[in-house]
Design a binder for these strands. Structure first.
Length: 496
RNA sequence: GGUCCUUUGGCCGAGUGGCUAGGCAAAGCUCUGCAAAAGCUUCUACAGCGGUUCGAAUCCGCUAGGGACCUCCA
């Protein structure tokens, strides 16, 4: 079974092969740091983190490039050329770079909590003005861009005559050329479908750089083309991002890079679907965003409680990345419980003793488990079927719990299978899905204190001093720590 | 208006032409000093109407609803 990825460009699943054996170049459109990240942003960065982890598991050395857009894009094509970032900076009376730094820091903070691996390179747009100018000059030299009033535009009509502009996003070029938009500044362009490579800056515009065409700032799409080319080459393996970026952003990226580098830039285009709220895309313009800080604190009218980043990560994995995922507090609560149950089973599993030489007493069960385990990679190979992987893992949760409680004999499955199970659970949950324990069990001091309380409580129970035993459990519960008696007389605990 | 996608049980959410996805919730039972957890059992759905087929939630058409993109957007 080959490893297949759905390629947005061809609209079908394709077997994955990398350009350079053993290596993968992956570019993912990063955040615009003019504001705080919200739940919608969590999806691509968590999903492509899984892609990165899975490719790594497959033995590839991945160069993962994810940009920081700190130069600001236009509020609206052609109009006033207002830089989003400098506009907000004025409102908040901050230096533009101060604002950008603040939100960059917040972004890093949030995605560290999500346990996302940092990109290999995280280039900023402002740090690559030179590369962008160079690229624009090349495109002009090739005859696919023209200057107008100190701005530079890409000639879409000319490009479309020899190339397939619109293929990625399913646009019809004639429709695009005919589209009438009542926007100012359109007269600078030869065609309405043309897009800016460089915009001249109005006097009040704070972020500005010198260029061969006067002072200005780079256009919408050129930064990704320039930085991807610089760090991944003229042609690289994977380009990812939200599907709302397909047009015009990625379509334009293809056009720019193709002209500049004389070849199509990307082998596999991957797009994640949106997170919706009441069926509608979460986005600033809809006024329905839940910021990540609000999600983690529970401080939002739509939230019934605070949510752990791992709950969100799990929630995202429960849906396929190409389907819309509808958010509600209720759905997240369900994910929280589900994740807790699965994770506890995982931790129990890792503690089960293994007798390697034992044969399976229950062959049927052993076979079933072996099948479930073998399917995990098959599901992932089929365009990242994370929900199916989780479904199989859940199938095994009751079995793990039953073995632990003695409801299923320890020798029902072979030592070999048990060992494999441990290995696969760890591999998929921790290494590939990047999930981790949500409670404070890693704290040694707390562990020791809890052990002490458990000893006292055990003693009290033996003495039938239920007043003391209940007091310990009840007061711990008030502190958010759940103490559970187990069938064999043992006790376990967890943070609520 | 154009292009495209989508409609699954109380909720979330996989999915393939024929075989119970899974999770959460709910109900009953077992275990238990009490609790919690856990285990077992129950809940069999695919918007509507036609068509193709031996057989369709899965393919086609129509109707209705929802959504995305066409403007910054993950």
């Amino acid at each position: 079974m080959p490893f297949k990825i759905y390629n947005s460009y061809s609209r079908q699943k394709e077997a994955f092969t990398s350009i350079t054996p053993g290596h993968v170049g992956m570019y993912v459109c990063g955040p615009t740091v003019s504001g705080e990240s919200h739940l919608g942003h969590a999806r691509p960065y968590i999903f492509f983190d899984i892609v990165l982890r899975y490719l790594t598991y497959k033995g590839y050395k991945v160069r993962y490039v994810r940009n920081i857009t700190d130069a600001g894009h236009f509020e609206e094509e052609g109009r006033e050329a207002e830089d989003k970032i400098s506009k907000k900076a004025l409102l908040e009376k901050l230096e533009p770079m101060e604002l950008v730094q603040k939100y960059t820091n917040l972004f890093h903070w949030a995605f560290k909590k999500f346990n996302c691996i940092e990109p290999s390179i995280e280039p900023t747009a402002t740090g690559h003005i030179v590369e962008q100018i160079n690229m624009i000059e090349k495109i002009i030299a090739e005859g696919y861009a023209y200057t107008s009033n100190g701005s530079v535009y890409f000639d879409v009509k000319k490009y479309a005559a020899s190339y397939d502009y619109g293929k990625l996003s399913g646009r019809v070029i004639d429709d695009l050329l005919e589209t009438t938009r009542e926007l100012d500044g359109q007269d600078e362009k030869r065609d309405l479908a043309d897009f800016a490579l460089w915009k001249s800056a109005a006097p009040e515009h704070i972020m500005r750089w010198k260029s061969p065409w006067g002072e200005g700032f780079p256009g919408w799409h050129i930064e990704c083309s320039a930085m991807a080319t610089k760090y991944l080459g003229a042609e690289f393996d994977i380009h990812g991002g939200g599907m709302d970026l397909q047009f015009p952003h990625h379509e334009s990226e293809i056009a720019q890079s193709t002209i500049c580098n004389h070849q199509a830039p990307v082998r596999y285009w991957m797009h994640n679907n949106m997170i919706t709220i009441n069926g509608r895309k979460m986005g600033k313009s809809y006024n329905n965003v839940i910021k990540l800080t609000e999600l983690f604190s529970g401080d939002h009218p739509l939230l019934t409680q605070a949510f752990n980043p791992m709950t969100v990560r799990f929630f995202i994995l429960q849906g396929h990345y190409r389907s819309p995922l509808d958010f509600s507090s209720e759905a997240l609560v369900a994910s929280e419980k589900a994740f807790k149950r699965l994770w506890e089973a995982h931790e129990l599993l890792q503690k089960l003793p293994v007798r390697e030489t034992t044969a399976a007493a229950d062959k049927e069960l052993d076979d079933k488990i072996t099948l479930w385990l073998s399917e995990l990679e098959i599901f992932m190979d089929d365009d990242f079927g994370t929900p199916k992987v989780l479904a199989n893992l859940f199938e095994m949760a009751p079995i793990i719990n039953s073995i632990k409680d003695g409801l299923i004999a320890a020798d029902a499955i072979s030592g070999e299978t048990l060992l494999l199970m441990k290995k696969k659970f760890r591999l998929f949950l921790e290494d590939i899905f990047g999930l981790q324990s949500v409670d404070g069990k890693n704290n040694e001091t707390l562990n020791a204190v809890m052990q002490l309380l458990i000893d006292i409580r055990k003693n009290a129970k033996i003495q039938k001093d239920y007043a003391t035993s209940d007091k310990i459990r009840i007061q711990l519960s008030e502190l958010g720590i759940l103490l559970k008696d187990e069938k064999d007389g043992g006790m376990s605990w967890g943070v609520e």
